[in-house]
Design a binder for these strands. Structure first.
Lengths: 346, 346
DNA sequence: CGCTGGCACTCGTTGGGTGAAAGTGCTGAC
DNA sequence: GTCAGCACTTTCACCCAACGAGTGCCAGCG
């Protein structure tokens, strides 16, 4: 009897929400009274509903319509009433199967696959953030001469994440010089985080300046140019089309706002970042999320990577009216699976 | 006076199409007669329109509505009437500016930027296909040991394109072994196309079998595992949201079909591939394109890369009702610019 | 005292009907 | 060949009434 709701009130709130989730329409007292699990008359239900409305858990779109759960209502339901079961083995197996043969992929590909799996199992849109590059551990750096003066840098993190970029350099550098740089830098920077890499390069440059070793100086400079500067992590969005079916998005203007919000990587990233700080599955309701264009949407997110220091976050986003009892375990299990797949590489 | 249309008929067809493009509504005789460039009465225009309808260039949604151009009408207009001007210098500059500072990016990033630029300048959705990996020229291959038994392969093409993949291998291989493999393979495979690389690997493996050189055999085997097998090229889609504004897509079901078609990379690829065979800008009208979900859409595409052997294709896709006089030059110029940017790397 | 059936009331939705607006085709005159 | 005029068609916006879903409240029952 948490939070002062009687058993009956909880039962009816649950019933209203469950019905609303499946029908997307205001639900009336008669509908509820017909449910097998409820054994009271419509009139009684109306009384209870009226109470629940007063508490802010339900509203009426208009006087003669049924009730619709408010965001608070849904939140209360999810947090205090809903019992989250473990995902059943069949569903788990299906998700695992989706990763089958994908373990050999580069991190970004793994995360894209994750997004696709999340969206197809949840029937919602999926968000997956790539690990923050700043936290990655340096593994190796390679310079490949494309043509005189143009160098491709390949930066490999211990997680298997790869970043490529092309930089310009003095034309007289040959591939042999670059190979030398590669060996030098790889030794110098082994097993540092990107932040430490940056520091170390700074320090060594100061030292080399004193010693005036031109070759090493050049290597260090190239190394610095190769690092990602202030690039925020990537976000993968998959399964947007799943949202197109929902009746709450039958308005094209609304859809446009949502899809435009999805293009704004940085806001999505901020949204996902919220779940980095806390363990387990988080629920963010649109109004609270304060993300323009995403009002009325709800995100169910979790972090992946180490418990202590999560690498990134993933989740599902869709109408507030979604089947939380199904989606929460999906997000939870998927996050754990991804942690495991990526973790096995360290 | 091409194709048996009188000057007046052409004038009126153009006027109808131009008006339709800007208003998205059936256009009537009165509207046309009010244009400055047309100096005849509505009645006369009605006669001409009636003729044009008989020829299949216009239709009426219903008896008392204005006329709407048919796909054939638009096609005829674009091919026989429209004079495509060169893009003005300001617009060119704006596109070039979009690439500023982006030349240092990896091929895929360049193409993504291209898509973004195309979609923002055309206000339509943009498609860009990545160069077919089979045609790329081998530049370098690197093996990085992630942990015992797990190897990251980085495959660099001469164009600056990079492919990463993770492969499994015997646990006892160390990074020094891998470095040896790298040197051996890079020498062996220098400047071959991917197809030739494949052949060469086959041949060498046969040879090494005879000589039974275990080390080199392993290197060759790893090299083979690293190659992309039957992976078709990627397609980047950008600016989908631009389509959400158009009145012809106010129907959500229609939108869903379109967006789902956009998820089907392979059909998009086939669509783009059509423009690989012919030079210059191509117009593909939805009905002809035979792509499920894309009926009623039109793609304006062009190939980029060498004239003789194009690397990939790019284009814009949107409602048949688009401003071709603006979009054709945009696609044309962008394709040329991309060819130049990527070409300078060979 | 809580539950329930009954009843009056509210309000959105649906369907038919009507008039205005837009546009056409045709005809006859210049 | 061009054009003004006119009769005709069809959509669209609007109104209005009937309908129905749902509520709140009240009085009676266990």
């Amino acid at each position: 009897m948490a939070k002062g709701l009687s058993e009956r009130e909880k039962l009816i709130l649950s019933a209203v929400i469950a019905t609303y989730i499946s029908d997307a329409e205001p639900v009336g007292s008669r509908t509820i009274s017909k449910l097998k699990s409820v054994n009271v008359s419509p009139a009684t239900i109306r009384n209870v509903m009226s109470d629940l409305e007063e508490m802010g858990y339900l509203t009426q779109p208009h006087v003669s319509a049924g009730r619709v759960p408010t965001p608070q209502g849904i939140r209360f339901y999810v947090e205090s009433i809903l019992e989250v079961r473990e995902l059943d083995e069949r569903a788990k197996a299906r998700i695992r199967a989706g990763f089958q043969g994908r373990q050999e992929l580069e991190v970004r590909e793994v995360l894209k696959t994750t997004g696709r799996l999340l969206s197809s199992t949840s029937q919602q849109a999926a968000l997956v953030s790539a690990p923050n590059p700043e936290q990655e551990v340096f593994r190796r750096m390679e310079f490949v001469l494309l043509r005189p003066g143009l160098i491709l840098v390949v930066l490999v993190a211990r997680s298997g994440g790869v970043q490529n970029r092309i930089i310009e350099a003095e034309a007289e550098l040959g591939q042999e010089d670059l190979d030398k740089f590669t060996r030098y830098l790889n030794e110098l920077l082994a097993d540092l985080t990107l932040n430490e890499v940056r520091e170390r390069l700074e320090r060594e440059m100061a030292r080399e300046k004193v010693r005036f070793d031109r070759v090493l100086g050049r290597a260090l400079r190239l190394g610095q140019q190769a690092l990602p500067w202030g690039e925020s992590g990537d976000v993968f969005v998959e399964g947007r089309t799943n949202l197109l079916g929902a009746p709450e998005f039958s308005d094209v203007a609304r859809l446009k706002a949502i899809f435009q919000a999805f293009e704004e990587r940085s806001t999505l990233l901020r949204l996902l970042e919220r779940s980095l700080s806390a363990p387990g599955v988080q629920i963010l309701m649109g109004a609270e999320a304060e993300v323009a264009g995403l009002e009325g949407l709800t995100a169910v997110t979790a972090s992946y990577g180490g418990e202590a220091q999560p690498a990134g976050a993933l989740g599902v986003i869709g109408p507030a009216r979604m089947d939380y009892s199904k989606i929460i375990p999906i997000v939870d299990y998927t996050a754990r699976l991804v942690s495991q797949i990526l973790g096995s590489r360290d």
